[in-house]
Nucleic acid binder design. Structure first.
Lengths: 144, 144
DNA sequence: AAAATTGGTTGATTTTGTCAACTATATTTA
DNA sequence: TAAATATAGTTGACAAAATCAACCAATTTT
C-alpha cells in the first residue's frame, strides 16, 4: 500500500510541476526572473529584512543575492540602510516604486492563475482549492 | 470568489514548491539533474519513444533535449535508432546500463517520498493521494 | 518538382547558480 | 585591551542550466 501511495504522489508531483512551470513562464514574461520575484516577495512581506534572512528562507547563495540586490538598488526598487546596532548588516526595504513593481508583478501572476481557473467551472474551482487546502493541512506537519 | 480562489491556489503553489524542492534536493545529490531524470523516466516508461513525444509530455525545449540525449548516448545510457517509416525521427530506448541507472535513481526518489509519507498516519496518506488524484483530474483539462 | 512542413541539431546567448577570496565590522579570548 | 576568530555582505571567476533562433535533412503537400 505504501508503495502504491509513493507512486501516486510521484504522479502528482510530475503533473503539478508542469502546472507551476507553465505559470512561472509568465513571471519570466515580466521584467523579473524567478529568483528576483522571490526576493521582492520576501522584502515586500518583511520590511527591514536582512540579506541573511532571505538566504535562510530561500536558500539562495549569498553572492548571487548580493548581486541581485545591487541591481535592485540601482533600479531604485530596494533601499539599503546600514544597521545601527551592527555595522556589518543592512536592512532592506522596498521603495515606493519597488512596492509598485512588486504589486504589478503580483497582479500578473494572479492574472495567470485567473486564466487557469477560468477554464474550469465554478464548482470545479471550489473543489480544486478544497483539495489543495487539504493537502496543505496534511503535509504541513511534515515540512514544518 | 474567483479572487479568493486565486489567492488559495497561490498559497498552495508556494507551499507545494517547498515540498517538491525538498524532494528534488535528493535527485540533485545523484549524478542527474531534474530534466535528465525526467527524460530517463519518459524513455524508461515508453520504449522507442521519440524526442517529440518527450517535448510534448515534459515541455522541455527541443534544443536542450537534443543536447541531453547526446550526452546520454555518449554515456551509453540511451540508444538512438533511426525510424524506418520516417527518416527524420529517431526512436529512443534505454540500454541495459541506462535501465539500471534509472532504477537506482528511481529507488532514491521513492525512498525520499517514503520518508515523507512515513511521517503521516496511514489514513492521512490515503487522503493525501486522494486529494492529489482529484486535483489531477480537475486540472488535466487545462493543460496539455 | 517546388514549396511548405516536420523532427531534430547546432551556435550563440542569457539566466541561474557556485566557489573562493576579500573587506568591514563585531565578538571572543587570552 | 590587543590579537584571534567569527559574521555580514561584496566581488571575481566560472560552470551549469535553459532558451532562442537559425539551420539541415527527410517528408508531405500542392
Amino acid at each position: 500500500m505504501l508503495q502504491k501511495n509513493i507512486a501516486e504522489v510521484r504522479v502528482f508531483n510530475r503533473f503539478y510541476t508542469r502546472v507551476t512551470g507553465l505559470l512561472d513562464k509568465y513571471i519570466l514574461h515580466s521584467n523579473y526572473t524567478l529568483p528576483e520575484a522571490r526576493i521582492l516577495y520576501e522584502i515586500y512581506h518583511n520590511e527591514n529584512i536582512q540579506a541573511g534572512d532571505i538566504i535562510a528562507s530561500t536558500g539562495i547563495d549569498k553572492g548571487y543575492l548580493s548581486r541581485i540586490l545591487k541591481i535592485f538598488v540601482a533600479k531604485k526598487l530596494v533601499a539599503k540602510k546600514r544597521s545601527v546596532q551592527d555595522g556589518r548588516s543592512v536592512h532592506l526595504s522596498l521603495t515606493t516604486q519597488g512596492k509598485r513593481e512588486f504589486e504589478a508583478l503580483n497582479a500578473v501572476q494572479d492574472e495567470e492563475i485567473k486564466k487557469l481557473l477560468e477554464m474550469l467551472l465554478v464548482d470545479e474551482r471550489e473543489k480544486l482549492v478544497y483539495h489543495m487546502a487539504e493537502i496543505n493541512k496534511i503535509l504541513s506537519k511534515t515540512i514544518s
